[in-house]
Simulated scan of single mutants.
Amino acid sequence: MEQRLKARKPHTAGSMASRVRAFIVILVSLPAFLAVTPVASADPAGGAHITDIQHVTDRWDKVSVYSPSMNTVIVNDVFKAPKSGAPSFYLLPGIDGGDNLDPGVFFAPGTKSWFGMTDIQGFLANKNVNVVSPLGGQFSWWTNWVNDGSKQYQTYMTKELPPLINSQYKTNGKNAVGGLSSTGGTAIDYAVQSPGTFRAVGSYSGFLTPSDPQAAQNISLTLSTGGLSAENMWGPLGGPDWVAHDPSKNVSRLKGVAVYAAASDTGDVGEVDRLPDGFGPNISGGFIERIVSDSTRQFADAARAAGIPVTYVARPQGSHTWGLFESEMQESWNTTIGPALGA
Rank of each mutant, 00 (worst) to 15 (best):
A303D: 09
V75Y: 12
G184M: 14
L161E: 09
T143K: 06
G342P: 13
N172T: 04
D148M: 07
L237A: 02
P276T: 11
H320F: 06
T222Q: 13
A302K: 01
K151G: 00
S284R: 00
S293W: 09
D268A: 09
K80R: 15
D52F: 06
I288D: 07
R290W: 10
V25L: 13
R290C: 09
Q317L: 09
V201F: 11
L30E: 02
Q168Y: 03
H320E: 08
V20R: 02
N334L: 12
I219F: 11
Y204C: 13
A305W: 03
G239Y: 00
G173C: 03
L341F: 02
R315N: 13
T311D: 13
G116H: 10
P309D: 12
G270F: 07
E271R: 10
H55Q: 11
T158P: 00
N218K: 08
N144G: 06
T143Q: 03
V75D: 14
G278F: 08
H55I: 04
E328T: 12
T171C: 05
E331I: 12
T225G: 02
V20F: 08
T143D: 01
D246C: 02
D61L: 05
V132D: 12
V78E: 04
S295Y: 09
T186V: 11
Q317P: 05
I24L: 14
N175K: 11
G185R: 05
N147I: 00
N126M: 12
Y312L: 03
V132W: 11
G116C: 12
R253E: 05
V20Y: 00
G136S: 09
L254T: 03
H245I: 09
Y190H: 09
A340N: 06
P93M: 13
E331L: 14
T321Y: 00
W60G: 02
E331D: 15
T225M: 13
A42E: 02
T225Q: 15
S264W: 01
F279P: 07
S211T: 04
Y156E: 02
L275A: 05
T336W: 00
F79V: 11
P163E: 04
R290E: 06
W142S: 10
G14K: 02
Q154R: 00
S133N: 13
N334Y: 08
K159G: 07
T111I: 09
A7Q: 07
G338V: 09
S15W: 07
E331K: 14
F123Y: 15
R19D: 11
W114D: 06
A262W: 05
T12M: 01
T72C: 10
G206Y: 12
Q152S: 07
N128T: 13
D58F: 01
P68G: 04
A343E: 10
D189N: 15
P195A: 03
V243F: 06
A263K: 03
S140H: 00
L341V: 10
L341E: 09
S182P: 13
A125H: 15
K151W: 01
I337R: 06
R290A: 08
